[in-house]
Simulated scan of single mutants.
Amino acid sequence: MTRSAPSRRLALLAASAAAIVLTLTGMTPASAAAPPTAADSSQVVNYVNLGDSYSAGFGSGSLVAGPFFGCLQGSGPSHVTQIASTENVNLLANAACAGLRTGEIAGVIGAIGGQLGAADLVTLSLGANDLDIRGLLSVCSTAGLDMACDQALAAGAQLIPTVGASAHQTLALLDASTSGQILVLDYPRLFTASAGDQPLLTAARARDLNALGDSLNKAIRNATRGTSASFISVQGRFNNHGLGSTDPWIYFNAGNLNDPFNLHPTTTGYLQGYYPAVRSYLNRLLP
């Protein structure tokens, strides 16, 4: 989700798809395992993970380099690591990167067509970077101006249809690239507005930002129409676990507003919010 300074390097993805292809051929075994042989392929669920920082595990562990230049991921446990460590699951590629927009994810899809062609399961999240949710929080915080926040929220709302259309194009490309089960994961509500005003954000602005996030999730859900992708919501599992709650599953370092993990799930959020949402789909694929 974040467009922090380290992740701005990801703009190179949009500039040169050829460079992505060249670098992905050097993926490590952990990020791009060899496909199983014909003898054992029926016993294995081949898995590919794509998407933005929510798919890259930001908020859990520490910052680590991903499988190609400019790609950043979290090193800690997440729904992706849980799936990958499941018996009879073979992780072909983990090509999710913080900062990727929908169009950049399409570039990655084109670059790893071989892995996607062999995939039985694909997970991803997409769309939040197109809106720059982190920037909206900065404008709408208690340190900002109401007029600037209103303008930013209005601009974000106007952008939603464009984000949805771009997401649909990316998902259509993904659908054409794999016959596997595609799971599109949404975003949790970041704030618990019922907790009242907080030092960083008033309850009213928390509701405004949550509402914009809801609109984004609706657009992403609509973007799956006309494809074989399934839209998976995690919002219910994150209820009462947003920022401001007594048990937040969203990471936020108040001492460092530039912490790249801010506004992402914690390890608990990934393991108790995201992983249960995909577990039933995984179970259907396992032998």
Rank of each mutant, 00 (worst) to 15 (best):
A155D: 10
T162K: 14
D175M: 14
G196S: 13
A157T: 06
Q181F: 04
V184G: 01
L201Y: 07
V163M: 05
Q169P: 01
Y187Q: 14
A154H: 08
Q169Y: 01
L174C: 12
T178A: 08
L185K: 00
L200H: 09
Q181P: 03
L174W: 03
S177K: 06
G156E: 01
P188G: 06
T162I: 13
A167F: 10
D197C: 10
R207Y: 03
D208K: 05
V163P: 00
F191G: 03
I160S: 08
L200G: 11
G213I: 05
P199K: 13
A193T: 06
A203S: 12
A154D: 09
H168Y: 12
P161C: 12
A155V: 07
P188C: 08
L159Q: 08
R207S: 05
A155G: 07
L183W: 08
L190C: 09
F191V: 11
P161H: 13
A172T: 11
T178I: 06
S194W: 08
G156N: 00
I160P: 01
A157D: 06
Y187K: 10
Q158P: 03
V184N: 04
S179A: 14
L185I: 12
T192A: 13
T202Q: 05
A167P: 03
G156H: 00
A193C: 07
T192C: 10
T192H: 03
V163H: 00
A211C: 12
P161L: 14
A165G: 15
A154P: 03
Y187A: 13
N210Q: 11
P188N: 12
S166K: 06
A167Q: 04
T192L: 03
L174Y: 03
P199W: 11
S194D: 14
G213T: 07
A167H: 06
L171R: 00
G213R: 00
A172S: 15
A195P: 09
V163T: 11
L200V: 13
A193D: 04
R189M: 10
P161M: 14
T170A: 15
H168C: 07
A172D: 15
H168M: 08
L212Q: 02
A206S: 13
G164T: 08
S179F: 04
A204H: 05
G180A: 14
A211W: 09
A206T: 06
T192F: 01
L185S: 09
A195R: 06
A203H: 08
A154E: 10
G213Q: 01
D197G: 15
R207C: 00
A172N: 12
V184Q: 07
G196L: 13
L201N: 03
D175L: 08
A206L: 00
L174A: 12
A154Q: 09
Q158I: 06
A206M: 09
L153K: 00
L173W: 10
L173C: 05
A203Q: 08
Q198K: 12
R205T: 02
A172E: 14
S166F: 01
Q181S: 11
R207E: 11
L212W: 04
D197Q: 12
L153V: 08
T162D: 15
G164H: 02
L185Y: 02
A157H: 03
F191N: 01
T202D: 10
T170S: 09
Q169F: 04
A195M: 11
I160Y: 05
